[in-house]
Design a protein around this nucleic acid. Sequence first.
DNA 1: CATGAATGAGTCTTCATTCAT
DNA 2: AATGAATGAAGACTCATTCAT
Lengths: 217, 217, 217, 217
Amino acid sequence: MQVNNVETLFKKTLRESDLSAKQQSVLQVSLNLFAEQGFDRTSTSEIAKAAGVSEGTVFKQFKTKDGILKAILDPIVAHVVPMVATEFLDELKTNNLVDLKSFLQYAIQDRMTFAVENRQQIKVFAQEILRNPKIITDLSGKVEAVVNGQVGEVLQQFKDRGELVDWPNMRIIRYLVGILGSYVFPQVFLAPTADFDADKASQEAVEVLMRGLTPVK
Amino acid sequence: MQVNNVETLFKKTLRESDLSAKQQSVLQVSLNLFAEQGFDRTSTSEIAKAAGVSEGTVFKQFKTKDGILKAILDPIVAHVVPMVATEFLDELKTNNLVDLKSFLQYAIQDRMTFAVENRQQIKVFAQEILRNPKIITDLSGKVEAVVNGQVGEVLQQFKDRGELVDWPNMRIIRYLVGILGSYVFPQVFLAPTADFDADKASQEAVEVLMRGLTPVK
Amino acid sequence: MQVNNVETLFKKTLRESDLSAKQQSVLQVSLNLFAEQGFDRTSTSEIAKAAGVSEGTVFKQFKTKDGILKAILDPIVAHVVPMVATEFLDELKTNNLVDLKSFLQYAIQDRMTFAVENRQQIKVFAQEILRNPKIITDLSGKVEAVVNGQVGEVLQQFKDRGELVDWPNMRIIRYLVGILGSYVFPQVFLAPTADFDADKASQEAVEVLMRGLTPVK
Amino acid sequence: MQVNNVETLFKKTLRESDLSAKQQSVLQVSLNLFAEQGFDRTSTSEIAKAAGVSEGTVFKQFKTKDGILKAILDPIVAHVVPMVATEFLDELKTNNLVDLKSFLQYAIQDRMTFAVENRQQIKVFAQEILRNPKIITDLSGKVEAVVNGQVGEVLQQFKDRGELVDWPNMRIIRYLVGILGSYVFPQVFLAPTADFDADKASQEAVEVLMRGLTPVK
DNA sequence: CATGAATGAGTCTTCATTCAT
DNA sequence: AATGAATGAAGACTCATTCAT
């Protein structure tokens, strides 16, 4: 199965950057601390200590504390998100999703796993969005392009075959995300319950989505 | 129509408290500032200035900065949420919701309006949940009680009449909230677009929910 | 003889301000430290310690380190300079300066004493002028007004009586200041020699000025 | 006319030193930055960047930041000042200054031009003197030697011929410098006004000095 | 010689909190 | 109850200096 793990991809991006080992460590450690206790509640001295570097080193490269956050978020937005998207879309095609149900089963389960595995990164993103919603305005363009582009093609197939209601792509995706979120949200932001059954959850989600998105005869 | 406005109810709660006018002002102003710029980014001196009181006064009553947040959140959780819930449930009964569609139309539109009107308070809550998920664990008990209690009765009617799938109440509510959230989330947390059409949005939401939640013959 | 001491006047201004004793102490101590070791080489913690207050107190009132400097310089420019000027001019009139020589003797000696007694304040000013010459542009207006105003009247008397060359006031004052400075400068900015004889110095200065400024028959 | 420009001479001194091109660049750039923004407000990284060298290089040669200042000031004191003095004295002799007026005209105008052309260097010196007056104690010996030596010879001629008052050389030079300074100071340290007329200024200065320094019959 | 990443002490500044009035 | 001056610990950030390469 695909890696699909932001942390792995993030580390890869780090390795390919021209940052020194210490500076990479700063970003790695910051990501974890920001996710755990929030940006504002994480001090730069805490970061330095956790990364095993001096406080000067932190600022030498990243200039400001906000610079650290930017150094984390920017490559994720610029590289990780597209990589993940591409990977996901490739899988969609590879897996030869013959009908809507297969497609939904795959997509829902895949994204659910993704969300749970990348809780940390998602939380950092969520915090930043609450603080500065502009960040998502920048992303929404990309998302819309993908939805109407490659994802749109896939959806169109199902529409053509009469398997999917003829609603705008954004509307269909909205419901997909909404239903997915209704399962994922508590796991990511609230207490991640140990008894969360991703299989059962995705089956249920697929069931209600199939009902909601199949054309009425 | 009902007031349904947390701010109004919050003010009412304040009036009924034994807090002096100045102390009420502190809470009122804090709520706004916390929503606008976040708890960590709001200083107590800023609060004091905005509330027109001295810094000493802020602490005289609330002991700590966290105490202010608690003084805001606690009554909302203790009084405002129940009041809103009761009000909502009363309306459900009063409006004589003869069938599932009427029920969904009413519920969705009502909650959508509620969310948009109370953006500020919701944002403060969201921040606090990210920081301290425990707060929702406390709430979830109450919510589950309501869902399985009064709301459960309503849902049961529809199930009995064969208008609603025979799924657990929590599952049904999950989808309701998920679909609702897919419309409301961008308005509350991202850019609140001026062209948001609550009527159209709730009609669409009802449409997909009716499909998803109606039993198959 | 007149007080003529900026420090005394500065303290008087402080007392009349609405600053607390501690805050006055901050300014007093800062003035001394800035004069001794320069603005940039004086740390705020040093100021706090010397003033016997916490570092927070320093910033509570003066906001920034520059704010401290401003709080020192502004009242001097606004009040002390005018007070000193008035005092000086009053003395000029009171002492019934019958001829140019008496006038020069008085003025030179008086200003020389003034400069030597207020070395500290003058040094702080000098530093600030090197850093930010704008400060003197603001003052030059006032100075010119006095030179052409009250001082001008005095000079005009001597011109009318044929005791003083008919040059523009600014030119005459320029030489007065230049010659005065040639004696004062080393005392203020270089090593203040113990054997400095203000009496002899002013006699010499008066001698050369009398020669330079008396009309040729 | 003579070069009379400290920068040119400074560069020449640099070329004749055993410093590498990069290290010379460090001194050159430091001089400018110190003059513009002061020693304390110029960081070593700023110097390194402006000089196009690494931070390590700056310290390799000069050990400390003070070492840079020393490396700038020392050669000026050791070589440039003497060179300028010699040049000046040579000119005095070459120009065959027949009488006191010619001498004053030449000297005043020459030094005035010198001061205005070397504003930067003078400002660095002035700053350093404010900070560490000892530097001038070292210089004063040299100055006194020159004043009583070669300059003394020139002055003696005029005294012998009855063109110049029989005052100690230092006293005469004091007035020369004082009057000169009264014109030059504002140009160097305050706003350098575009309309400064060096010709007119030196004529005026000569006029008052001739009056002040000519023996009374 | 030259580099530049790394250091850590020190700087200015903020802020929640206390307390005498 | 209310004030606001005072506190001091902690925060972000700077900078002269070192050292392995």
